[in-house]
Design a protein around this nucleic acid. Structure first.
Lengths: 253, 253
DNA sequence: CGGGGAGTTGAATGCAGTCAACAAATGTGG
DNA sequence: CCACATTTGTTGACTGCATTCAACTCCCCG
């Protein structure tokens, strides 16, 4: 892990700002918010950002890269709680002196902007907009979790995998749009089939069978850490989701 | 549904206040908070508190009774998102002019205290403590949802049912404690086996088989709308949960 | 070129769904 | 208060999805 504390890039110029926490804030508040930022950190793939049991004293916004948030279970299993990418807020907790209940690991090389949590708390008192921004993030995460739970509980592996792949694709390509990249060739997809299984409670073997089934139906193309979805509507059908509704749920921050 | 707007009972005297949103607030702030309350409403069993698609303009705290929050799915299925009881906050959303994405139905007779949401928003600006209270609730709901998702995704029906029954029992009996009632005879359990199935994505038939299995092991006694759990630790073992951890997750508001 | 992680395939097992029938409990109207 | 309808709970047989275990291939990296 590398840290830089000086000559930090400017928030105004940040390509991902509108996707991130401060995207909710008017530019006029940006100075105050930016003053909270303490440093930028870079993590290598497979490096932990933090571990279950750590006491969080900084919140982080991902500037670049994919992060997996997960919990270890008995018997060597693990449950992936969230796939996080640029713009996402990590490790923020209102509850005081609580230890954090999950771990976060970098999948790709990851850059984050870190903010001391205490600074947040002090600032919220004088900047109610920050409250609404943060609370809105918490609510959205909660809504996504409920939606995921609903899918997992009620549908089979094919639907679950379709739902997850489509979700990751939508979020990934929304981000490419922001950076004005060409998304027609699919998005970076650095996850293993085991990751997908750990998110859905499936074995990697069964995920593999489902991948092949989806490939045969021309619903996904997935290889070389790349995911392409030719017909989002069609995959949404398999995922038992309304594409418009899903996009609204996922691209909002 | 019956509404009363005058001679509302005093918040200071409310038996469930310490379990509810304002339990987080110091008494000195109570006047301000209480001023937000607009009315008390009473709903009969099977009556909707609100429906998916409604535009929420009031938040509600349950004063008494059990409420089920759910979403209708295709094919006549439904997903129960939350079982709510006295002290729980319903239908609060930071996001403006959003319609609500689930329905709420009374299981028992239910009394709620209603607050215009706009009043909340205005008040938060001058009462940051209210922010921390609300955000803490949103975070807790999110943490519970992740925990439920983890259980559903990774364990079988027996574990899931055990986890849910234990959760409901812990919350129900914590509430009996508050009211100084005798909890030794179990708690009110007004749910059908189909409700349990709808929460976990199981069929009522399979829930029934699991109930019987748990009964044979003397882990639960459940009849006449009453649930008794003699050995919480033992059931927690089946539920693959740490009893202390679970209680911390569930009794906090 | 060898090793390890990721992906692929097949066969056997077991958990949960479906369908169908019935019993028990609850509610309703005569 | 009884007769009947409806909801809830119970049981059995059959089917199908997902796991487990084992073996094997492919690809990347050192």
């Amino acid at each position: 892990m590398k840290t830089i504390t000086h000559n930090l890039p400017k928030c105004e110029d940040c390509a991902i700002r509108k996707m991130a926490l401060f995207g909710e804030l008017e530019t006029k508040y940006l100075d105050k918010a930016r003053a909270l930022r303490s440093c930028q950190m870079t993590f290598q793939p497979d490096e932990y950002l933090y571990r279950e049991g750590d006491a969080p004293n900084t919140a982080m916004t991902i500037h670049d890269g994919w992060v997996i948030l997960f919990k270890d279970l008995e018997g060597g299993k693990r449950q992936i709680l969230r796939f996080a990418l640029a713009g996402d807020l990590l490790s923020y907790k209102t509850g005081n002196n609580d230890i954090i209940d999950h771990s976060a690991i970098a999948v790709t090389e990851v850059t984050v902007c870190a903010f001391p949590i205490q600074g947040f708390k002090d600032t919220i008192a004088e900047l109610p907009e920050l409250f609404f921004a943060i609370n809105s993030i918490t609510e959205i995460l909660s809504a996504r979790c409920l939606s995921t739970m609903t899918t997992i509980a009620n549908y089979n592996a094919e639907t679950n995998v379709a739902y997850l792949l489509l979700s990751l694709y939508i979020r990934g390509s929304a981000h490419c749009d922001t950076l004005n990249q060409d998304k027609m060739d699919g998005i970076l997809f650095p996850f293993t089939q085991e990751d997908i299984g750990d998110a859905l409670g499936l074995t990697a073997i069964h995920v593999n069978r489902v991948f092949q089934k989806l490939r045969k139906q021309d619903l996904i193309e997935c290889n070389n850490k790349n995911l392409r979805i030719a017909d989002e509507e069609k995959l949404a059908g398999v995922a038992q989701a309304d594409l418009g509704e899903l996009k609204r749920l996922l691209v909002a921050i």
